[in-house]
């Protein structure tokens, strides 16, 4: 599954671990929030970077401290019609002031890329195939927007 950033496939050092996986003592890892909650002590001397995978049913403001320490946060898009991650992202960016990388993982449609970027995501972990040309053309058609958001590259009024 490709990781997309700035409209292109990138390779990065993150390894995504699921709940059952053993947590290595080094390497850049992304772990589910509840693993972090359980193993926070042991992870305090982890030598690599640590990111958090946060489920859609988590109220991000309840975990502000952990999130502030994370090097990346990954939110989920279980179906492209499920918009919870958009609200979580805005909460993270605008209300909690999270500044590190924010990634969305799942059923991303090119037609949603612009909305996701405006809500504060930087990168996409894609379920489907990535077609760079369509992505470039289709995701950039709207250059205007009425709302002012965290990372808004669109033209707004006023």
């Amino acid at each position: 599954m490709p990781i997309i950033k700035d409209g292109a496939i990138i390779v990065d050092s993150w390894t995504m671990l699921d709940e059952e996986a053993d947590v290595p003592s080094s390497a850049d890892i992304i772990i589910p929030l509840n693993v972090m909650l359980e193993k926070a002590d042991r992870l305090s001397n982890h030598s690599g970077r640590i990111g958090l995978l946060i489920g859609n049913d988590v109220a991000v403001e309840d975990h502000a401290d952990l999130i502030a320490k994370a090097d990346i946060v990954v939110l989920e898009l279980p179906a492209f019609t499920d918009g919870r991650a958009y609200s979580q992202a805005r909460g993270l960016r605008e209300d909690l002031g999270f500044e590190k990388e924010l990634r969305v993982k799942g059923d991303v449609l090119v037609d949603q890329a612009a909305y996701l970027l405006r809500c504060g995501f930087d990168s996409f972990d894609f379920d489907g195939e990535f077609d760079a040309e369509t992505w470039k053309k289709s995701s950039g058609i709207m250059t205007t927007g009425y709302q002012r958001t965290y990372k808004d590259e669109l033209e707004t009024r006023g």
């Binding site: 492209f80 918009g83 958009y86 909305y115 809500c119 958001t149 009024r157």
Partner: peptide, 14 residues
């Protein structure tokens, strides 16, 4: 109307 048009957060509501 303006605020809700193509709202980045609220376009995939339940």
């Amino acid at each position: 109307r303006q605020w809700s048009s193509l709202h980045p957060e609220f376009s995939y509501l339940p």
